[in-house]
Write a protein that binds this DNA or RNA. Structure first.
Lengths: 328, 328
DNA sequence: CTGTTAGCGCCTTCAG
DNA sequence: CTGAAGGCGCTAACAG
C-alpha cells in the first residue's frame, strides 16, 4: 500500500500504464492530479538518455522570413511532446559554435540548423557526432547531413524566365551573401536561365553582405552609379527585404516601377502584396519547410531507417504589378 | 594524478576555476578540448536544481509581430548562457495548459508568457508556484505576476488624439479580441480620449475573434454594411494585420484612403511604411519588450530582491499618409 | 589545492 | 501485478 515510486512511474507512462492494476492506476492518477505532481523530465532524461527537446538554430528571429519556419517546426514536434530550444547565431561563426555547444551540453535529441553558412560546415559535422543534425532552409553543398530545403535554384530560374518571357533583355541581379546556400543557388538558377536564353546579366561588382533592407539600398545605389543612363529594364533581388530597400532608392531617384524598371523579389512576404507596387516574388514555403524538418527530426529520433534522406520543396512565382513588359 | 571528477568539475566551471592549480587547470582544459568533452548539463541540472533554461510561451510565432519579442528575449538571456524553450498555444486554453506542463516538467528556471488570455490566469498563477512566471506583451488586469508591457492604453489615446487633432468627428474602431489585455487597453485608451473630446465612436456590434487580416476584412465589411452612406471619416484598427485586411476591403469598395477614410493601425510592422498608402501606426517596441522581459527573468533567477516589479514601455505614433484631415 | 562521499529523481532490471 | 535495488553524470560538503 506504500505505492512505490516504480509503480507510480509505470502508471504515469502511457506506454506502460497497462501493466498496472486498474484500481491502483486510478488511485495514482487521482492522487497525482490532486497533489499537482508532475514528473521531473530532467531526472528522467538523465536516466533514459533522451530529453524530449529539439534544438533550433537560426541566424536572427527578427528577420520576418524565419519565424514561419520555427512555427512549422514547433507545430510539427509538439505532437510528439517535444519542445524546441531556440538559439540565434546572428550569422556569426563564433556564436554558431557556442550555440551548438549549448544545445549539445543540454543533450537535445536532435537539432535543426536553419542558419548555416558555408564556414560552419566543419562545426556542424562535428556536432553531428553527438546528436542528429538536420540542415534546414540553408543548405551546404557537399555535406552528408540530411537537408530540408526549398528549391532556390528553381526559384532563380522562375524569376529569370518570367522576366525573359516579358521581353526583358537588359537584366541585373542584386545578390545576397555568397556563403549562404540559398543565395548561391538563386544566383546560379537565375544566371543559367539567362545564359540559356542568350541574355547577359549586368554584373555588379558587389553583393549584399547580409540580406537586409539596408544592403538592398546600398546595392541599388551601386547599380544606379554604375549604369548611368544605361539602366537595365529589370532586376532580380534575392529577397523581399532587399527588394524593398532597392525599391525605395529607385523611387527616390524618380525611377518608376514597373514602367522604368521591373523588380522580382523572393519570399512572398506577408504584406508584400500591399506595397506600392505589389511585388512579384518567388514564394518561400517557410511553414512547410519547418514542418518537414520537424517531421524528419521525429523520424530520426524514432530511429526510422532511411529517414535521413532530406527533402527539396518546389518553388513557385507570384506575379504582381512590379513586373511588366519593358517600356523603354 | 587520477584527475578526479570533482577537480574537472571545478576546472570547467568559470566560477570555480580559480580554486584549482594553474597547471592542473591547463591540463584539464587541454585534455577536455582534445577529447571533445562537454559537461552534461542535464545531470548538472538534476544535481543543482537549476537547468539554465527559460520557457517562452507565445500564441503563434508565425504572427510577424511576436518574432521580435522572442528575438529580444533570446538576445537578452543568451548573455547569461540561458537558452529559451519556445512553445506555442495557438491562443487555445487547453494548449496553454499543456505548454505550461511541458515547461514545468522540464524544470525551466523561469518562464515568460507572451500569449496570455484572460481565461489563462488561474493556470498561470498555479504555474507560478513552481517556477517564476513573467507576463510579457499581454497583461492580465488583476494579477500579481510581474508584467512587462507596452502602454497600450496610451497608444489608443495617441491614435484618438491624432485623429481628433486632424479634425475628425465621426470615428470608428475595429477591435481585437476582448480577452487579450492589449486590445482591451487600446480600446479603453481610444474611447476615453474620444469621450473627453466629446466625440462619440461608431459602435460596431462585433469585435475581431482573432487579430488577423481575415478578421480585419470581416469587420471592415460589417462597418460598410452598417454605415451605408454615413461612413465615418476615420477608423482606428487594433493592429496592422487587421488594418491591411480592412484597407483591401475599403479599396475594393472604391473608398479611398486617406481621402475618404483615414486609417490608424498598430505595431508599425516592418514593411508597413511601403504599403499603399503608407500606414500611420502606433509603434510597438517588440524587441525592447523582449529584452526587458529577458532581463527581468535573469534578475529573478539571480534572486535580486524587488526585481519582480514589472515594466511599462511608452508608446509612440508614426504618422504616415493613411491619415489626413477629413475631406468629406 | 585535491580527493571522497553522497544523493539529486527517475526508470529499468530483477525478484517476489 | 508490485516492490527493492542500482545507477545515469554531476557537484556540494567535507576531509584531507
Amino acid at each position: 500500500m506504500g505505492k512505490d515510486a516504480s509503480t507510480v512511474s509505470r502508471a504515469l507512462d502511457p506506454t506502460k500504464a497497462h501493466l498496472v492494476n486498474q484500481a491502483t492506476l486510478a488511485l495514482i492518477l487521482e492522487t497525482a492530479g490532486r497533489m499537482g505532481y508532475r514528473g521531473d523530465r530532467v531526472a528522467g532524461a538523465l536516466r533514459r538518455g533522451t530529453t524530449g527537446t529539439v534544438g533550433v538554430v537560426v541566424a536572427d528571429l527578427a528577420n520576418p522570413f524565419i519565424a514561419p519556419v520555427v512555427h512549422g517546426i514547433t507545430s510539427a514536434i509538439s505532437s510528439e511532446n517535444l519542445v524546441a530550444m531556440v538559439v540565434e547565431t546572428n550569422d556569426d561563426h563564433v556564436q554558431m559554435e557556442s550555440c551548438l555547444d549549448h544545445l549539445l551540453s543540454r543533450r537535445v535529441d536532435a537539432m535543426i540548423v536553419a542558419g548555416a553558412r558555408f564556414g560552419d560546415q566543419a562545426a556542424l559535422e562535428a556536432a553531428s557526432r553527438h546528436a542528429a543534425v538536420i540542415l534546414a532552409v540553408r543548405g551546404l553543398p557537399d555535406c552528408q547531413l540530411p537537408q530540408v530545403l526549398h528549391d532556390d535554384h528553381g526559384g532563380g530560374r522562375l524569376a529569370a524566365r518570367h522576366l525573359l518571357h516579358l521581353g526583358h533583355t537588359r537584366l541585373a541581379e542584386l545578390r545576397g551573401p555568397d556563403d549562404v546556400g540559398n543565395f548561391v543557388a538563386r544566383h546560379q538558377g537565375f544566371s543559367s536561365a539567362c545564359a540559356e536564353a542568350g541574355v547577359s546579366v549586368v554584373d555588379l561588382p558587389e553583393i549584399g553582405e547580409r540580406p537586409t533592407r539596408e544592403e538592398g539600398e546600398r546595392l541599388a545605389g551601386l547599380l544606379l552609379d554604375r549604369s548611368n543612363s544605361d539602366l537595365p529594364t529589370a532586376v532580380f533581388v534575392h529577397n523581399d527585404l532587399m527588394a524593398l530597400g532597392a525599391l525605395s532608392v529607385f523611387k527616390a531617384h524618380g525611377i518608376k516601377c514597373p514602367e522604368d524598371l521591373s523588380i522580382v523579389g523572393y519570399n512572398d512576404s506577408p504584406t508584400i502584396d500591399q506595397v506600392d507596387p505589389p511585388l512579384t516574388s518567388v514564394a518561400y514555403p517557410g511553414i512547410a519547410i519547418g514542418k518537414a524538418a520537424g517531421a524528419l527530426a521525429i523520424a530520426i529520433i524514432a530511429g526510422v531507417e532511411g529517414a535521413a534522406s532530406g527533402n527539396l520543396l518546389p518553388s513557385s512565382l507570384v506575379e504582381r504589378a512590379s513586373t511588366s513588359t519593358p517600356r523603354r
